[in-house]
Design a protein around this nucleic acid. Structure first.
Lengths: 183, 183
DNA sequence: GTCTATATACCGATAGAC
DNA sequence: GTCTATCGGTATATAGAC
């Protein structure tokens, strides 16, 4: 097995166990066991547990950057807002496994992800402010936070609504989030 | 300081640190230090870390039981649904500190809360099914999950929307959740 | 009830042979 | 790249004096 394959196998085993048991509840030995190597060999591929976790969740950072990049160009109209929400939701659906780590293990993320966490928080803040709109009334801000929460339902929908396919999740959650924003 | 006071002080210090740093990232020594006793003394009051965590989050179990108890009596009409959601949301607002542990540290909860977690999951499932209604179409189920997610926004609203008071959170989130359910 | 001291175990991480 | 062996640290939990 080449280096690329082993690295992938490590990330996949780690992601699976992180989701199943939690980040802190999963030791590097357990991950190595699943891959079929020793803990010391795992350290050859990833310098630390934080490094491994970072490699796993960076796709989420890219999704958020992608959304942030269109914020200033998108018109703050019903269609513009729907387009931003759609982009956010599609990104989550494409990376729901990695994304679910953030909601099921937010404490571990905060404790471990030094470099990228501030950027994620800042992007999230920007999206919230943009969604709330120029008036920035308290009610609008609450609705903006709640609308994103609706989209985050995509991360746990597989467990709660297994019969729903991605197209239906996209359509229903997008419509529900727009409703929360009263659009 | 009597036994009752020490026990309360332990729970309060633990809750504060669990929220600030996460359950797994908080050691019993750190909790004992904040209370001003030693770790060994803490063990006199709580038999284990799991025991302490259980004592902290049981109010949430009572809230959920309270909601579950009215499910079968409440009519499945707009008014009946609003009343169930209101009860759920008021319960969360009254115990948002304890409740936020479940969303920020769900993995630790799963790993630690043996006895009560199955009951919480079962109640959550019952509420979802009741909310989705007798048709149980996929879209209705998705909307039910998303509506509860909107209410859960109350748990993080203090950080995201500090200027919102509880009355406004109750009014806006309840309205938003009803909107998600198309009522 | 609180303490000091300790048992036991596992963790993340490293050294160095192959 | 993978291994064996180990370091240093901290965790939960317990024993027993006061």
């Amino acid at each position: 097995m080449g280096a690329r394959d082993t690295r992938s196998a490590i990330r996949e085993a780690a992601l699976r166990q992180f989701i199943a048991k939690g980040v802190e509840q999963t030791s590097l030995r357990e991950i190595a066991d699943e891959v079929g190597i020793t803990k010391a060999s795992l350290y050859y591929h990833y310098a630390s547990k934080a490094d491994l976790l970072l490699a796993i969740v960076t796709p989420i950072l890219f999704v958020m950057r992608d959304v942030a990049d269109v914020l200033d160009q998108a018109p703050h109209t019903a269609d513009g807002i729907r387009e931003v929400l759609r982009r956010y939701l599609i990104g989550l659906l494409n990376h729901r496994a990695e994304g679910s780590l953030f909601v099921r293990d937010a404490s571990a993320m905060t404790a471990t992800l030094g470099p990228i966490l501030p950027e994620l928080i800042e992007i999230n803040r920007r999206i919230n402010i943009w969604l709330a709109g120029p008036d920035a009334a308290t009610e609008s801000t609450i609705r903006a936070v709640a609308a994103l929460e609706v989209l985050n339902t995509a991360l746990s929908a597989n467990a709660a609504v297994p019969q729903a396919d991605d197209e239906e999740l996209l359509r229903v959650l997008l419509d529900a989030a727009m409703g929360v924003l009263r659009l």
